[in-house]
């Protein structure tokens, strides 16, 4: 029996992969909560996500002059936009739940190591 197991294990693939260099063979479930995506064109700046966030990581930042000029007709009254600090986010998904326009979504993009803090801000 031991020899059978031994031979089997000799030709078996390793259980692990060299993450994050390899992501092949990793099954990310549909409900996985990872990096956020915010569609600023449909965001109305209501601040619901910032108020609901249990980790207090969503800041409502005033729009710049350029962004104010770019706003489309639908969101004419928008003055602020959400910016999420991923370094302190607990990925609970509450912001996604409370968003009235579905502009804030959690993707299953897990790979987010970075040396610069600015890269870990979504907004």
């Amino acid at each position: 029996m031991l020899i059978v197991e031994l031979i089997k294990n000799l030709f078996r693939k390793p259980e692990t992969v060299r993450y994050p260099y390899e992501t092949k063979g990793l099954n990310f479930p549909e409900r996985l909560r990872a990096m956020h995506v915010i569609d600023q064109d449909s965001c109305i700046g209501c601040s619901k996500c910032a108020r609901a966030c249990p980790a207090f990581v969503i800041q409502m930042v005033p729009l710049t002059e350029e962004e104010l000029a770019k706003r489309n007709e639908k969101i004419k009254r928008k003055r602020v936009k959400p910016v999420i600090d991923l370094t302190a986010c607990i990925f609970c998904g509450v912001c996604e739940e409370v968003c009235p326009t579905d502009c804030l979504n959690l993707t299953n993009q897990l790979v987010m190591p970075s040396g610069r803090k600015e890269e870990l801000e979504v907004g």
Binding site: N27, P29, R31, L32, R33, I90, F91, C92, G93, V94
Partner: peptide, 15 residues
């Protein structure tokens, strides 16, 4: 752990 992840989206701290 995979079952928990499939149902809730997380391995621990399921929310």
């Amino acid at each position: 752990m995979d079952l928990l992840e499939t149902l809730t989206g997380n391995r621990v701290n399921y929310g």
